[in-house]
């Protein structure tokens, strides 16, 4: 337990180690710690901001969605109305067309019946003449009778 030069030696080495520590150990590590603290707090702030943005986006989405829904509803309503209109229009048109067609058909039928009547008239008169001719073959002068028949036909 002698006090000797070791005391001085220890003091000198202590000074050197402290100097080295102050120069090369303490500053880099504490600055790294500071830096990390800053990065972490920045990250946390960013995360919070992101959270807020997300929240806002959710609200936006909700809003947009409900807007789209009402729009869709109105579109459907409009389409339904339009459909009714189209149907109405179509039915009116169809009725018109139908009546037109009926009229045309009626006319055609009339014409046909006229023609039929005419041909029937012709056929009947011919038949009558033929019949009469057969009956009166010998006694009747053909030419005089033809004239009479023609008059008859015209009268009919």
């Amino acid at each position: 337990m002698n006090i000797n030069l070791t005391l001085i030696g220890q003091a000198i080495s202590f000074a050197i180690f402290v100097w080295f520590c102050m120069k090369f150990v303490w500053p880099p590590i504490t600055s790294a710690l500071e830096q990390r603290k800053k990065t972490i707090s920045e990250g946390l702030t960013a995360a919070e901001q992101g959270q807020q943005a997300l929240e806002k986006a959710k609200v936006d989405v909700e809003e947009k969605l409900s807007e789209a829904k009402t729009e869709a509803k109105s579109i459907i309503a409009m389409a339904e109305k339009r459909q009714g209109d189209i149907l109405d229009e179509a039915s009116v048109k169809a009725t018109e067309e139908a009546s037109k067609k009926i009229k045309l058909a009626e006319q055609e039928v009339e014409q046909l019946s006229m023609r039929l009547k005419e041909s029937l008239k012709k056929d009947l008169s011919k038949l009558v003449i033929d019949g009469a001719e057969m009956i009166l073959k010998k006694e009747i002068d053909k030419s005089a009778h033809d004239k009479a028949i023609k008059d008859l036909v015209n009268k009919i």
Binding site: N4, T6, G9, Q10, S13, C21, V25
Partner: peptide, 24 residues
């Protein structure tokens, strides 16, 4: 007083160097 403890000094400096080298 004019003497030095080689063991104390050696171990002290050696251990101090371990500390310094590890930390730096």
């Amino acid at each position: 007083f004019y003497a030095i403890h080689l063991d104390s000094m050696g171990w002290a400096i050696g251990l101090g160097l371990i500390f310094i080298i590890l930390f730096s």
